[in-house]
């Protein structure tokens, strides 16, 4: 059911009139909001951690945020190897579910990287085992991937896939709002001065 535009406008004006929204230096508000949204993801989705990778202007996939070391190690490995469920998810624009990385032939290089150099012990208090990568889509185009993970093998059921997909869609919505706010004049988006490199 569509939102009531009139009610929405009235309510937004009411909010503007009475709520403290402290503004911080350029970009920090956006970081704080995305940090909250990623942190909330683990509680909402009931997963151990999440990582977010997004394409930049040159179509290079970059790690934008992670909730813990396990996600950080997984995302870094995928980025370095250019192999992984998140990589396939962005390339194909489709959900990739891996119940156990350790048993996956396709992603064996990722697992090799995660489990450590030689002794087979997982790093950082437990490496990712089950990974679910969903597309982050804007205007129908896949622009990134949300990776949800468990540190133990797990079968992803339909309800979990739907939930993580829905969360990926919400992240896309938030990033679109942020991108729009940067380009409508309220938050300057100037080229950086030369001395800042």
């Amino acid at each position: 059911m569509p939102i009531d535009d009139v009610a929405f406008s009235v309510s937004l004006m009411a909010l503007l009139a009475r709520v403290d929204l402290p503004t911080r230096a350029d970009g920090q508000d956006v970081q704080a909001r995305l940090d909250e949204v990623l942190s909330a993801a683990t509680g909402v989705l009931g997963v151990d951690s999440v990582g977010l990778m997004m394409l930049d202007e040159d179509d290079v996939l970059r790690v934008v945020g992670v909730t813990d070391d396990a996600a950080g190690v997984l995302e870094a490995a995928q980025q370095r190897l250019d192999v992984g469920p998140g990589i396939d998810c962005v390339r194909d624009g489709a959900v990739v579910a891996v119940d156990d990385l350790a048993g996956s032939e396709r992603y064996a290089p990722v697992w090799e990287c995660l489990r450590g150099p030689s002794n087979g012990q997982p790093r950082g208090g437990g490496a990712a085992r089950a990974v679910l990568s969903v597309p982050v889509r804007v205007r129908g185009e896949t622009v990134g991937t949300l990776n949800a993970l468990h540190r133990t093998p797990q079968r992803w059921d339909d309800a979990q896939v739907r939930a993580v997909e829905a969360y990926g869609a919400v992240i896309a919505i938030l990033l679109r709002l942020e991108a729009a706010a940067r380009t409508d004049g309220s938050v300057p988006n100037r080229p950086r001065p030369i001395e800042e490199d």
Partner: peptide, 23 residues
């Protein structure tokens, strides 16, 4: 803000902001 990489986030937003200004 240890969880978020500001430069990579900015790069992503620049990409998203290119197509149209308002959503």
């Amino acid at each position: 803000m240890p969880n978020i990489d500001p430069q990579n986030l900015a790069a992503s937003l620049r990409r998203l902001g290119v197509a149209d200004g308002h959503d």
